[in-house]
Design a protein around this nucleic acid. Sequence first.
DNA 1: CGCCCTGTTGAATCTGGTCAAACTAAGTGG
DNA 2: CCACTTAGTTTGACCAGATTCAACAGGGCG
Lengths: 255, 255
Amino acid sequence: MTNLTEQDPSCTSISCQHCGLYQLGLSMGLDSADTSLPDRYIKRKFMLKRGQVLYRAGEEFTSIYSIRSGSVKTYISTDDGRLQITGFHVPGELLGLNAIGENRYNCEAVALEASSVCKISLECFQEIALQIPSVNYQMLRMMSKEIKHHQDLMLLLGKMSAEERLATYLLSLSRRFALRNYSPNQFNLSMSRGDIGNYVGIAEETVCRIFTRFQEEGLIIIRRRHIILTDIERLSVIAREPYQPPTVARYPLEI
Amino acid sequence: MTNLTEQDPSCTSISCQHCGLYQLGLSMGLDSADTSLPDRYIKRKFMLKRGQVLYRAGEEFTSIYSIRSGSVKTYISTDDGRLQITGFHVPGELLGLNAIGENRYNCEAVALEASSVCKISLECFQEIALQIPSVNYQMLRMMSKEIKHHQDLMLLLGKMSAEERLATYLLSLSRRFALRNYSPNQFNLSMSRGDIGNYVGIAEETVCRIFTRFQEEGLIIIRRRHIILTDIERLSVIAREPYQPPTVARYPLEI
DNA sequence: CGCCCTGTTGAATCTGGTCAAACTAAGTGG
DNA sequence: CCACTTAGTTTGACCAGATTCAACAGGGCG
């Protein structure tokens, strides 16, 4: 996802549209009146190396994280060590919120590449919530969104063929990029074939085979981690989705 | 699930341990002080016939429901009509809460058999929340629980063999029954083989085949909808779960 | 430059899906 | 009360898609 990082506009704490706090509806109360709030609250920005862990399942819930650049995967695991990736997360998305019910993270988050992350501590977050009551409601909305995402993934895992899964996957990536003003037709995959296969529930080798099949059929051009979607409409047919023309970004972002 | 209904204790609005409101932590403020609250709020109790719809996906969020007897399935669907069952719900469980973020239900709920249900309107619910602030927190907890449940299901759908899926399924049913003081070794399946298969992501026929295999191996005795788990330990091995002795019910219930 | 990780391809295998048919239990209506 | 219908379940035969195993290619990085 190097092209993402390149395109990433320089990001000050006030104008930063990538800052996930926008998704909590904080823009409402903050932009006009008290412009110092974000600086006070978005305490620590730091870098993650590829493979570095942001938090582990079962760990105490201390902070939420907003991705500024790079990408992060989250996954859960069985007792005997099998993993199921539950999401890939790109700049502008918030991580860790679902820990709020149990007070501990229920999945593990690991950087897929060098990534920049904002850490917002729980206390800061609660202080924000006090000042801006709608934050509570926004949190419910975000958990709802997450449930929706899980439901989509369950349908994918339970009911779709390998081709459908991959077409669906590529289209969903494309849509999320479009939403953030990146090209919906051309992007880098920051995750390995193995990660993709794990996420959509098929073997790594099947991912390869189907990608080459898609390429032979003129749907995509793929070379290692770089992919061009050359026929989104036909991909939509395979994924059995109604074709959706690219959406323009709005803020606060819909995930 | 006829045996469930038979065992179901008579259920007044005050002492009703099955009433899902206990899960919202309402017992704390209510039991001692204002014993009239439940009567005021748990307005409508009514019966559902088998196959009757409680709510549909996309419908406006008007009420949450607490199951008093019987059972209900919830499911989501693709554009082209394939369904994925996301849960089977038994007495004591609350339904519809996850609609709170989007203000519309995100799945469909249908009775599996004749069932009795309490309807709690949104307004009533909000009034309760005003009087008992902890309700907000309890809601977050419950959404967290739901996310946890989805994660388990995703692991099942994405990473498990057919045998593991069914063993896991039977054990999870057993555990939920134990939690409600029903027998963990012997119960009725209120859902069809097709529903079971849909839920765990395998074909109806595979469900049958594996159930008979389990029976031949002395793990279960199954005859139509009635099942006896004769070797829970060995089932746990197949499901790759650590063996858990049956848990006794506590209130408020953990789902 | 050489190693290592990731990705790709082929071949054999197998799990689980599909289709079809028989069977059971429970209604339903005459 | 019995014949008939229907929905649900079970079993068998066959097959396809996906997994597994193995070998190999090629980039990237020290």
